[in-house]
Amino acid sequence: MLDPLVAVGPLRFGMKHDEVKAALDGKWNGGGQGTADGWHWTPYDEGCVTAVYDQNDYLVGVQVAAMGGPFVRLDDVELIGRIPSAARAEILGLAARRGAQVTTNRSGNPRIAAWGVSMTTEQEWGRLPEGHIERKDTVITSALFTAPKVADDVAASVIAGYDVCDLVANPGYWPVTPDDERPRWDWTPLEQIGPIRFGMSPHQVAAALGEAPAGRTGAFPFWYWKEPGQWSLHTDHFEHTGITAQYRSPDGVPELGAVTVHGRTGPQLHYDGIPLVGITPSVLEAAIIQHVEDHDLGLRYSPNGAAAPDGPNLYLDATRTGNTSVSEPTFFTEDWYF
């Protein structure tokens, strides 16, 4: 049960790490990460519960995963593992009965500040009859719960490892550009995607696209065993073009290492005639697997569980389109790590 601004199940805001660990029966994964100003997060129960601690090591936020996390209920409303539209409707009804204001957070999901609740979503997974897991085409709800006076976007940025102050916010809807209205881009593995090439500086990328970034993320590298370093640029988000440029800084100077093409609005690219952008994930995966089998090629699975052809440095993710999702590919250099 959720006791708003006080407790989430056995976890009470203000607990220390050892108390949280004991409340969760010692299910600490080890590890965690801190920020330059002393906030840090720690995963528990195989990452299904993530705790956020402030500079004084007090628990101020709890994120519960959609898959594998505990069910969390507020009154008669289940918050975790739900179809987003159904959960939203019930949350709005409960908020109306309680006189609480519902706004929209940066991810486009309901935020109820009076309850310290900020809803999020994750890709849904299922299990095949033979026991293997499979990525579905749908998304389900997860949530972040915070202590009083703790902004949910600050807690989320601690978990994500970057500053969200310049991150583009979703207004709460997910329109998809029809395929025949998308520009067509060519790409050469390890070299270029459309008009931009790997190794470019942020200024060169913006010039090639003819567009200034609408938002960007970055972070101060700070782990428990390291000292704070120079703030480094992670991504530039180009709203009009429909891509996100991802940078690495091997010598302190950012250079383009990966490009994510936005599944809802980005240009279309093909792999041997197979469209990669804005496609139902299961349909795209079936086409990729069939192509690999027909041409006796290698197949690999990305960390997110998606099948991809071996060789072209292509990562196939998915992005939300309401209750469902569409494909969102990332093209990357040889030494890029996810």
Score class of each variant (00 low, 15 high):
P4I: 01
P4W: 03
L5D: 03
V6P: 01
V8I: 14
G9S: 04
D18W: 11
V20Y: 09
A22R: 15
G26D: 01
K27E: 09
K27D: 01
K27I: 10
G30C: 05
G31I: 02
T35F: 02
T35W: 05
G38D: 06
W41R: 07
D45M: 14
C48S: 14
A51V: 04
Y53E: 02
D57R: 15
L59C: 01
G61C: 07
G69R: 09
P70E: 09
F71H: 15
L74M: 12
L74C: 07
G81M: 03
R82K: 12
I83N: 13
P84D: 08
S85C: 03
A87G: 01
R88N: 10
E90I: 09
L92C: 10
L94N: 05
G99H: 04
V102Q: 04
T104G: 08
R106Q: 08
R106P: 05
P110V: 02
A114Q: 13
W115D: 00
G116E: 08
G116Q: 00
T120M: 05
Q123E: 09
G126P: 00
P129L: 06
E130W: 13
E130V: 13
E134F: 14
D137L: 03
T138G: 00
V139M: 10
I140C: 07
I140D: 11
A143Y: 08
L144N: 05
F145R: 04
K149G: 06
I159N: 00
Y162G: 06
D163C: 10
V164G: 10
P175Y: 01
T177Y: 08
D179S: 13
R182W: 10
R182A: 06
P183Y: 00
R184T: 10
D186W: 02
D186C: 10
T188W: 01
P195W: 04
R197K: 12
F198N: 03
F198V: 05
G199N: 06
G199E: 12
A206E: 02
E211F: 03
E211G: 05
P213C: 09
P213R: 07
Y224M: 11
K226E: 15
W231C: 02
S232K: 14
D236M: 11
H237D: 09
H237F: 05
G242L: 08
I243Y: 05
A245H: 06
R248C: 09
G252E: 06
V253L: 11
G257C: 07
V259K: 08
T260W: 06
H262E: 07
T265L: 14
Q268A: 14
L269C: 06
Y271S: 05
P275H: 07
V277E: 08
S282I: 00
V283C: 02
V283I: 11
A286F: 03
A287R: 15
I289L: 09
Q290Y: 01
H291R: 13
E293G: 04
D296R: 04
D296V: 13
D296S: 12
L297N: 10
G298A: 03
L299Q: 02
A308G: 09
D310P: 00
N313V: 00
L314G: 03
L316W: 00
L316P: 02
T321H: 09
S325Y: 00
V326D: 03
P329C: 07
F332R: 11
W336I: 04
